[in-house]
Simulated assay, not measured.
Amino acid sequence: MREEATAFVPGHVTGFFSAHPDEDPTKAGSRGGGLTLTDGVEVTVEPATETTVVLDGEPIEIDPVRTVLEALEVPARVEAESDLPLGAGFGVSGAMALGTAFAANQVFERRRSRNELVAVAHAAEVEAGTGLGDVVAQAQGGIPIRLEPGGPAVNELDAVPARARIEYVAFGELSTADVLAGETAKLSRAGEAALSRLVEEPTLECFMDASRRFAREAELLTPTLESTIEEVTESGGQASMAMLGETVFALGTGLSDAGYEPSVCRTHPSGAVLK
């Protein structure tokens, strides 16, 4: 047993998705497209007599993290640090679950493979209702295209072969669990159409266009998000909504050119790693 281990997991912004439930959480998930970010979550795990979870110095309950530790049959202290806001569409809960899986596997010498750990974290997210596709995307990195849902044993992934500067502004939180627990048929139809467009033309420009159309067709845009995206478009940029949060993300200097003071990062070249 080691004293501690730390993993870094990139943030993930979903541009569009379709929901695919299944009784087996390792087979449930989403199809869709997104961006992984150099802004992410650093997760440190150390042995403890009982499990505690801390985010940016504050105790917090993140159900997927506890589920991951239960699956690995270990109690631990989990400390996470991130500049990304929770509940704003950046996959923070998924990142914490995946980072916990990687770091706990190292600390407690559980001898699980990468795919096994991704499956554990993915299932924990699905069971908690906090995400359907963040974990598998964060494990891969880049600009992943989720062609088939589920964990590593059943899903199919591709990617847009590009990198980009990304700007984002978070205005508030939306409940992923509430959206996923509601009627998702219309949302999923819009997501399938968006995926078809991106598969036909796997470019960043097409991803952004498909994401904007999805946000409108799925009727997820708040007035604030809609006006911000319009301002970026009028300034010659490309922007859309982060699923699922009250957040706008843009390529290049789109938000800056529209007069905002955004956070700035880049797409992440690879997936989650131990440090």
Rank of each mutant, 00 (worst) to 15 (best):
G254W: 00
G91A: 14
E246Q: 11
A193K: 08
P75V: 03
G254K: 02
G245P: 04
L251Y: 12
A242P: 09
E116A: 12
T38F: 03
E148H: 10
E127H: 00
V264F: 09
N115V: 02
P10E: 11
E183P: 05
A128K: 01
L220S: 06
R112W: 08
H122T: 05
I60Y: 13
V120K: 01
E125L: 09
T26Q: 14
E156I: 01
A162V: 08
R189M: 13
A101N: 07
R163W: 06
A101F: 04
S256R: 10
T14Y: 11
V9G: 05
L255R: 02
A250S: 15
A104R: 01
P10K: 00
V154A: 14
P202C: 10
M241H: 09
C265W: 06
S30V: 08
L198A: 08
R2T: 00
A95P: 00
Y168R: 01
V65R: 01
L55V: 15
R112C: 10
E219C: 07
E217T: 07
A76S: 07
M1L: 09
G91S: 13
S270C: 03
T6K: 00
L198R: 00
A170F: 13
L117C: 07
A76W: 03
E205N: 08
G40H: 05
E46A: 12
V9A: 07
V43K: 01
V248A: 12
T38G: 10
V53A: 11
D24S: 12
E156C: 06
T222N: 10
G245E: 14
P202W: 02
P64V: 06
G29P: 04
T253Y: 11
R189E: 15
L69P: 03
S211E: 15
E234K: 11
K275E: 15
L72H: 05
V273D: 05
G94I: 03
G15W: 03
E201L: 08
A19Y: 12
G172A: 11
G11V: 01
S240K: 00
R66N: 11
N115L: 09
A153H: 14
L225I: 11
G15P: 01
D22Y: 09
V53I: 15
T51Q: 03
T228A: 15
A139V: 06
Q140E: 15
V169I: 11
R31M: 14
V135N: 07
M243P: 00
G33T: 02
L35Q: 08
N155D: 15
P269S: 09
R31L: 14
